[in-house]
């Protein structure tokens, strides 16, 4: 290799096709293979255990735990089961709660009670018109007390 060619390489300028071939041949020559072996045979040494220990500490410090997808699914299923249990329990407890206030009954039940009361009242009136007590009055004896006068009452008139 002449110095002119080396200067061209140092300037890192484009090489002609012939120069490129010349460079390739030089790099593949026995002379260069020997130089390559000198570098390749240089020994590397392991760092000390103290160095490795310090590296491990630094790696632990920068470590960010990654949750496994399997664990996420497991937690989701547990959460879902808990939520469903809580919902069921709530519905059950609400169902058992006594309705102390009549105003809290549903409108359907209310209408039904009123209809029954009205029917019983009309039935009672019709019984009075016919001179007989209502079945309820006859059962309790109230009809007799209210509908007929005693001898004491007659005496006071």
């Amino acid at each position: 290799m002449n110095s002119e060619f080396e200067e061209k390489l140092k300037r890192e300028k484009g090489l002609s096709r012939d120069e490129q071939i010349r460079l390739e041949m030089a790099l593949d020559s026995r002379e260069h293979a020997e130089i390559r072996s000198w570098v390749g045979e240089l020994t590397d040494e392991d760092p000390s255990l103290a160095w490795r220990s310090a590296l491990n500490e630094r790696l632990h410090a920068v470590r960010t735990p990654v949750r496994q997808p399997k664990m996420r699914w497991r937690w989701a299923s547990v959460m879902g089961l808990g939520l469903a249990s809580a919902l069921t329990l709530t519905v059950y407890l609400v169902g058992l709660k006594p309705t102390a206030n009549p105003g809290t009954t549903s409108s359907g039940e209310k209408a039904s009670v009123e209809a029954n009361l009205l029917a019983a009242h009309q039935d009672g009136l019709s019984m009075l018109d016919l001179g007989t007590g209502s079945p309820a009055e006859r059962a309790t004896g109230l009809g007799q007390q209210n509908g007929s006068f005693s001898e004491v009452d007659l005496g006071t008139l």
Partner: peptide
Amino acid sequence: VGTVKSRLFLARAHLQGYV
């Protein structure tokens, strides 16, 4: 890649001179 080859040649020449 051409620059890699040029530099490799020069590096080996430098090493050879020392040896």
